[in-house]
Design a protein around this nucleic acid. Structure first.
Ligand code: FES
Ligand code: FES
Lengths: 162, 162
DNA sequence: GGAATTAAGGATATATCATATCCGAAAGCA
DNA sequence: TGCTTTCGGATATGATATATCCTTAATTCC
């Protein structure tokens, strides 16, 4: 059970976009260079964010991506689910129905106990992610990343933002 | 991020083994028939449980599997990790190191903020599973599965247990 | 002792999915 | 008009999950 690397990419990109001044856009090319990622493939992750209405785009030169909401209105779960999908990590294939001792045609009233427990754990994972806002990440980063790197990174970004 | 179906299989098998009288073994063949699963492949899942010391085995006719501990000493996480592995669902590939604005040779002091948050969610998932004991599952099942099916299933099992 | 049965593990095949690249279309800018 | 950008489709490749087969060693039963 491994999340795709696109999840990491999307989170880092959102953190950068969160620092973008109002009304500016940043292109896939710039985001790919900044993180050392394959531009074409990163583009798929950004498209997922776009379809989830987390970012807005504009075309043409000086086009690119910007956040569609304020960083404090975006939580981790939204970003993760945008690229990873909303499906639960555990799927019940109903093998209890194969029990040869069950009367033919018997129909279960509830989802089985095994699945309910696994889904509860899944929900705990989602809850944790739901509670962390993008603005929280930006806050932590701005404290932890050395000030000169932090500053020069955004100078680098602004030079490329349309 | 989808768990393998072996996880479901292992959980169901453990639930059955938990109902086995002291000292009896149940074969892969019986467990596969009971759940309608491919015997050879289910065998791999049971081998994983064996390697994790959750079950004990014996060879020869009347051989098979039994729990290595009491059901109240086995939690869900042990079973899940036995077949799914203990790796975290999120892996940090350190793309922050690719930032062209970082001075060459700069070394981060901490794991990055993104990873710490993702790992926290992962830990919440694991905590939930850790808190559920196999005996809890058996308790729920014995309440929810209709009494006649429950009874005839274990008659079926006992007929095949060595 | 010999035949049958079982778990363990290696080898292999297949399907599905993650990763990655390429291209054409549509939209915006100079 | 020409350039740049997002978007979506098509395609290729690699890794992993799923599944089967076969050999070996241990155990039981006759
Ligand atoms: S029947 Fe297996 S988890 Fe529902
Ligand atoms: S550098 Fe990306 S999660 Fe650590």
């Amino acid at each position: 059970m491994i999340l795709k690397s696109q999840v990491e990419w999307a989170l880092h990109c959102c953190a950068i976009l969160a620092g973008l001044p109002e009304g500016r856009y940043l292109s896939t090319k710039a985001l790919a260079e900044l993180h050392g990622l394959p531009k074409e493939y990163l583009s798929k992750a950004l498209q997922s964010l776009s379809q989830a209405s987390l970012v807005e785009t504009t075309l043409g030169p000086s086009g690119g991506y910007r956040l569609a909401k304020t960083p404090s209105d975006i939580n981790f779960l939204e970003i993760v689910e945008a690229v990873e999908g909303k499906a639960r990590s555990f799927t019940c294939t109903n093998i209890r129905e194969n029990n040869p001792c069950r009367p033919a045609g018997y129909c279960d009233s509830k989802p089985c106990a095994v699945a309910r427990i696994m889904w509860e754990a899944d929900e705990a994972w989602r809850d944790t992610l739901r509670r962390v806002r993008l603005s929280d990440l930006v806050g932590t980063l701005s404290e932890e990343v050395p000030a000169d790197i932090w500053r020069s990174t955004f100078e680098w970004v602004l030079k490329r933002a349309g």
